[in-house]
Design a protein around this nucleic acid. Structure first.
Lengths: 237, 237
DNA sequence: TTTCCAAAAATTGTTGACACTTAACCCCGC
DNA sequence: GCGGGGTTAAGTGTCAACAATTTTTGGAAA
């Protein structure tokens, strides 16, 4: 074991600033729920716990601020962002459009290997459904989606989708925890694979879009009270 | 006049951290071209010039990093991001999809007032075209686009679109500077208004998408040499 | 001249300190 | 008990200093 290092040593491979590490740590804590929406990120205690100063922590928080995971209030600090239902619907809406767009790209770009990869993931998910392993399904599901986005070979598209997913993370987990929901979601994946093999662009786009919106609707059904409170005119088209 | 203040005084209205101000300043400098792609942001001289310390500057740069306007290299600092043509095409692709999506939303949501607002902007742009005021056209054009996105009432959609626009800014300005380009662009705006009044969702989406891609193609024509260098398989659908 | 290398200068990475603001506490009068 | 109001504690905002790294410089050798 190396002696305590002031900076990450060149040979240790890391070669990154503390801020980057803290960024990842905070991101994970927010996504995993260790930090709940509304929580303040206490710079001082966070720094003291890790034996570092507040500078890098503030830098990490600024990045999270721009990513929309954290909110900054002058003289009060950084708070884990609270998403109201209205914003959740907004995000799902954009997300569905991007997923559909990915479908149109994939219609003329997806390879046999990629289809095989998705099929394998789908089979693992089916197994997870049968075994009632919701967490495992959730992880595989993320990989399924992010693989699809990666196959578009449009890094910006994939990044933006990933960013939206990250903002939704806590809520989506809640929606997928119900057994009936994972079952329905998995069935939709089967349909996605089917149309991807077929190759009709508009049909693929439609199926991917429907899958996104179905996910949104599954989430909404877990929270009828918030939905009732929302008197806007969103609908499915 | 207040004496020199260590912090922005509460009554001065600003009530924001220095980092936020620097963020805006750097953003503007990058967009306006005062900082060119590849330039390093010299923390020390930037801080000294403004009589502040490097902390807030680094915080601002971290936000710009997450926004994709700046790139961070360990021990070397922050550099204005260099977009290669490949990335420009990626961004245009996503941007067009989002613009089309906005069109589908507006098909059932746009109001008479909003149409009037867009029409007014269009007329100003037509005047700018005749007067050969490229800069003025460029500004109005941005307002035209961002108004359309704002009318969707989806803040995330508008923000993401804005972010992509910001990344493209320098390149787009280059494309629009040519007289023929502003003329074509303005004509397309006329068509957009026409279909928005009509209200057919798919048609609107298609026209908005075409306008985005036409802008992309206008840009490509200003740089035939880079296009030739790019041996990938992007096309128009 | 060109290339290489070491010393110097410039710049980044991080810290600890202090000014300032907000939040918590406690005591008092009711 | 239970609101005010002032005092204390906690936490943020910024800075200046120093360690570590990168870049520049200025020769010396080929």
């Amino acid at each position: 074991m190396p002696t305590t290092e002031l900076y990450p040593s060149p040979e240790s491979g890391a070669a990154q600033s503390i801020a980057t590490g803290i960024y990842r740590e905070l991101e994970t804590m927010i996504i995993e729920g260790a930090l709940a929406p509304g929580d303040r990120i206490n710079e001082k205690s966070f720094a003291d716990q890790r034996g570092i100063s507040r500078g890098p922590i503030r830098e990490a928080c600024r990045r999270l601020e721009e990513a929309g995971l954290v909110e900054f209030k002058v003289n009060r600090g950084f708070f884990v962002r609270v998403l109201d239902l209205r914003e959740v619907l907004e995000i799902y809406d954009v997300r569905a459009a991007l997923f559909a767009h990915a479908g149109r790209i994939l219609a003329r770009r997806i390879t046999g290997d990629q289809l095989a990869e998705l099929t394998a993931l789908h089979e693992e998910m089916e197994a997870a459904v049968e075994a009632r392993e919701a967490d495992s399904f959730y992880t595989l599901n993320r990989r399924f989606h992010s693989s699809i986005m990666a196959f578009t070979r449009n890094g910006h598209l994939a990044d933006i989708y990933e960013g939206l997913d990250r903002e939704l993370h806590i809520w989506r987990k809640r929606a997928l925890i119900l057994d009936g929901n994972v079952r329905a979601s998995s069935a939709e994946h089967g349909l996605i694979l089917e149309v991807l093999r077929n190759g009709n662009p508009s049909r693929i786009a439609q199926v991917l879009r429907d899958h996104s919106l179905a996910g949104r609707n599954r989430l909404l059904r877990t929270m009828p009270e918030q939905v009732a409170k929302l008197q806007t005119d969103w609908d499915d088209d």
